[in-house]
Design a protein around this nucleic acid. Structure first.
Length: 414
DNA sequence: TCTGGGGTCCTAGGACCC
DNA sequence: TCTGGGGTCCTAGGACCC
C-alpha cells in the first residue's frame, strides 16, 4: 500500500503578489495583465472569484465581471523563486518529490511513519513548514493513489488537509462531478453528459467495455480513474526521478494581428533564439523544429521539419523555422500568434562535419559568450536577430562581417 | 466574453522497410 | 492485376493541465 501526498499552493500567483504588496490582501486581484489587453487570467484572488472571475478567462471578460478588480502583470521570477522554496521544504521531508507544475507537487510518503508519524501528523508538519518558509497557504491531499491525492487536495482547499483513507476511494469520488477527474475537460465532460454521465459514481457503475468502446484507450483509463486508480502514461513515471523536457517552445500573440513580414520574421528569429538558449541551458540538442501560426479567426496550424542533424544553435533554428514560415505563410495574411517549438531531443551533439568544424566552433563560442552576457545584463542585451527590421536586417544579411566568429576568407555561416 | 504561454499525452494517416 | 501484415518514423491536430 502506497501513501501519496499532493500539495497544491492556494491562489499561488495572487498570494505571492500579496507578499510583495500587502495592500492587495482581501481585495479582488487578477494576475495576467492589464484589463484591456489580449490575454487571459492566470490567477484570481478568492475575492475576485466571487464575481465569477476564474483562470483562463479573457482579461476583458474579467474586467466586465469585476470592474473594481486590481489587474497586475505576472512576475514569473518571483513565482519561480517561491516555487523553489516550496521544493526545498518538500525535499527535506522526502527525496521522492515531483513538482507537477510551478505550484503543485506529488510526494511519495510510503514508509515514512517512523520519521514523520502517521499521514495526518506528517501532513500537518509539512503544511506548517511550508508556511514558516514562505508565509503562503497550501492544501494537501493524502491517498493511496496520486489521482485521489490530487482530487482530495482540491476538495481540501483553501488551506486544508484531507486524507482519503484506503478503501474509501470510490465512495469519496462517487458524488463528485466527472469534471473533477484530472483529464476530464470541457469536451470530455460534454461527451459524458450526453450519455447521461454526470457524477464520477455514474461512470464507476458503467462497464469497462462500454467506456473503451466509446472512448478507446481513454475510456479504459477513465474507468480506472472513476474507481480511484492511477491510470494513464503519466502515472507510470516514478516520483523523484530526473526528467528532461520533451519539448521546448516559445510563442507570442501580437497586440494586434499583423501581416508585416519583417515584424513576423524578426519575431520568429527572436523566439528561436530564446528556444536555442534554453536548449543550451538544458544541454539538449533538438532534431525537430515546428512553426505555429494562429490566424485572425483563431484557426491554428503547425508545420514541422526534422533536421538531418540535431542542433542547439540559434542560426540553425532560425533558418529552419524561417523556411517553414516562407513555405506556409501567404503574404498579406494577418497573423495573431506565432511560435517556435523544438522536440526529438538528444543529449549528444551531432557528429561534427570535419570540413565545417571550425566555423561551427566559432558560432558556439560566440553563443556561449552571448548567453553569459545575457546572464549579466538581461535578456535584451545581446541578440543576433531580435528587433532586426527592414534595412537593419538586410544590412546584416548582406554584411556577414557583423556575424560572430567571422574570419576573412571563411565560408558564410549558412 | 473573444480567447496567453508553456507544457504532456493521444490519435491517425502515410511513408518506408522487412 | 491484385495482393499481406507489422513496426517505426514523421507530421498534424486536438484535449487537457497549470
Amino acid at each position: 500500500m502506497k501513501t501519496y501526498f499532493h500539495l497544491d499552493m492556494d491562489a499561488f500567483f495572487v498570494s505571492v503578489e500579496e507578499l510583495f504588496d500587502p495592500t492587495l490582501k482581501g481585495k479582488p486581484v487578477v494576475v495576467g495583465g492589464k484589463a484591456n489587453e489580449r490575454g487571459v487570467v492566470s490567477a484570481a484572488s478568492y475575492a475576485a472569484r466571487k464575481f465569477g472571475v476564474h483562470s483562463a478567462m479573457p482579461l476583458r471578460t474579467a474586467h466586465k465581471l469585476c470592474p473594481q478588480a486590481i489587474f497586475v502583470e505576472g512576475h514569473m521570477e518571483r513565482y519561480r523563486e517561491y516555487s523553489g522554496r516550496v521544493y526545498e521544504v518538500l525535499n527535506r521531508f522526502t527525496p521522492l518529490v515531483s513538482m507537477a507544475s510551478i505550484d503543485e507537487a506529488y510526494l511519495d510518503m510510503t514508509g515514512t511513519e517512523r520519521l514523520h508519524g502517521r499521514p495526518m501528523k506528517a501532513a500537518h508538519s509539512l503544511h506548517q513548514a511550508i508556511h514558516d518558509s514562505t508565509k503562503l497557504n497550501s492544501s494537501i491531499g493524502i491517498a493511496a493513489s496520486r489521482l485521489v491525492a490530487k482530487v482530495s487536495s482540491d476538495q481540501a482547499k483553501p488551506n486544508g488537509i484531507l486524507w482519503v483513507v484506503p478503501g474509501s476511494e470510490a465512495s469519496f469520488l462517487a458524488p463528485l462531478d466527472v469534471r473533477k477527474i484530472p483529464g476530464v475537460g470541457k469536451v470530455t465532460e460534454g461527451n459524458l453528459h450526453r450519455l447521461g454521465i454526470r457524477k464520477v459514481g455514474d461512470m464507476a457503475r458503467l462497464d469497462e467495455g462500454f467506456l473503451s468502446a466509446r472512448f478507446g484507450q481513454w475510456g479504459l483509463a477513465m474507468a480506472g480513474k472513476a474507481l480511484g486508480m492511477d491510470a494513464g502514461a503519466w502515472f507510470d513515471t516514478e516520483i523523484g526521478g530526473r526528467e528532461d523536457p520533451k519539448s521546448i517552445s516559445h510563442e507570442h500573440t501580437f497586440a494586434e494581428d499583423t501581416s508585416d513580414s519583417d515584424q513576423l520574421e524578426s519575431s520568429l528569429a527572436h523566439l528561436a533564439e530564446k528556444v536555442a538558449r534554453r536548449l543550451r541551458e538544458h544541454g539538449l540538442y533538438a532534431r525537430t523544429v515546428q512553426l505555429k501560426m494562429r490566424f485572425s479567426d483563431f484557426t491554428t496550424i503547425t508545420r514541422a521539419h526534422s533536421l538531418p542533424d540535431v542542433t542547439q544553435l540559434d542560426i540553425e533554428l532560425i533558418e529552419a523555422v524561417r523556411r517553414l514560415f516562407r513555405a506556409n505563410w501567404r503574404p498579406g495574411t494577418p497573423i495573431r500568434l506565432i511560435g517556435v517549438q523544438t522536440s526529438s531531443f538528444d543529449t549528444r551533439e551531432a557528429q561534427p562535419d570535419l570540413l565545417d568544424g571550425g566555423r561551427l566552433d566559432r558560432w558556439k563560442h560566440a553563443l556561449s559568450a552571448a548567453d553569459r552576457l545575457r546572464d549579466r545584463f538581461g535578456e535584451s542585451a545581446v541578440s543576433l536577430a531580435t528587433g532586426m527590421r527592414g534595412k537593419y536586417r538586410e544590412r546584416i544579411q548582406e554584411n556577414p562581417a557583423d556575424l560572430p566568429g567571422k574570419q576573412p576568407g571563411d565560408a558564410e555561416p549558412k
